[in-house]
Design a protein around this nucleic acid. Structure first.
Length: 283
DNA sequence: CATAGATCCTGTATGC
DNA sequence: TGCATACAGGATCTAT
């Protein structure tokens, strides 16, 4: 569920509330969230126990915590239903709640990882250089996102302009460019006035540039207001909703009127996923 | 290699 | 009210 702006909002929350603190104790239960580490919760626990958190970083929809003098990071992916919550000591239930998979006790505050559908994961992954910065090895197949300095538009277009896949499907391909999910793909396509059903190779370089730039802009605006809370699933680390929902032009607005030309917003399905668009102003 | 489709889960909304 | 069905901000694995 969370896309780049929501993950960035959570990252910023961790930066202000968790970075600089030490993991006094970790609580968890064996769960699918730890599936990438063979020993499940135990191996995660042995890595984070007693460690001082010195950084919270992000690429696309992934975020990770870095520990002092430790080459291994705690990589977090929220899948469709993951949440990270920071609570002050005493305000969280003493027992892990139903879908809570990990809790880091940092003294005055606790960081809690909650995920009902378990499509997300919590993974210990070693850091390595990727361009100018250190990134978990697990992200080798994940492309830079359009808001990071290392993003290479030309390299991306080289692949994109040869593909017969629908443009929208390509925006969702995290190995091409990362961070964009179903909401911001539709919003970016709307802003660039392009229908998501076109084949990648049918767009000109100029159209592709306009499209990627539109997606980046929408996401930047969303970051500025704490992301999109389409329903109650997404909240920031303090439990607050994001305000970008009111700015959405097409996503979830089937049957409503296009704010640009008054035409009715339609819903179609591309590669099994909803696509919202205005047939009048997107071509 | 590139692509389409099935699959992993739970919770919520909708319709009968 | 109960029950059955559809659908959800994602990514990976499999088959073609």
């Amino acid at each position: 569920m969370p896309e780049l702006p929501e993950v960035e909002t959570i990252r910023a929350g961790l930066e202000s509330f968790a970075v600089g603190r030490t993991v006094l104790q970790a609580e968890g239960r064996d769960s699918r969230l730890f599936r990438h580490n063979p020993e499940s919760f135990a191996s995660v626990n042995s890595t984070v126990q007693g460690q001082k958190i010195i950084g919270a970083h992000r690429r696309g929809k992934f975020l990770w915590l870095v520990f002092e003098g430790e080459p291994r990071s705690l990589l977090i992916h929220l899948g469709m239903s993951g949440q990270v919550r920071v609570t002050t000591k005493g305000s969280a239930p003493a027992e892990l709640q139903k879908h809570e998979h990990l809790r880091l006790n940092l003294g005055r505050v606790s960081v809690r990882f909650i995920d009902p559908r378990t499509f997300g994961h919590l993974t210990i992954s070693e850091l390595e250089m990727s361009g100018e910065r250190k990134v978990p090895k697990f992200l080798r197949h994940i492309a830079p996102d359009p808001l990071e300095p290392g993003f290479d538009l030309d390299r991306m277009l080289q692949r994109a302009r040869q593909s017969t896949r629908p443009v929208k499907t390509m925006l969702l391909d995290q190995t091409l460019l990362s961070g964009i999910g179903n909401i911001y793909a539709d919003e970016g396509l709307f802003r660039a006035r392009i229908l998501g059903t076109h084949q990648g190779r049918d767009l000109t370089v100029a159209e592709w540039e306009k499209l990627v730039w539109a997606c980046a802009n929408v996401m930047e605006e969303a970051v500025a207001v704490g992301g999109t809370s389409f329903d109650t699933l997404y909240v920031d680390v303090q439990g607050n909703s994001g305000y970008f929902t009111r700015t959405l032009a097409v996503y979830g607005r089937a049957g409503k009127l296009c704010r640009r030309d008054g035409h009715t917003i339609e819903r179609a399905v591309i590669a099994g996923r909803s696509h919202f668009f205005c047939a009048a102003c997107q071509r």
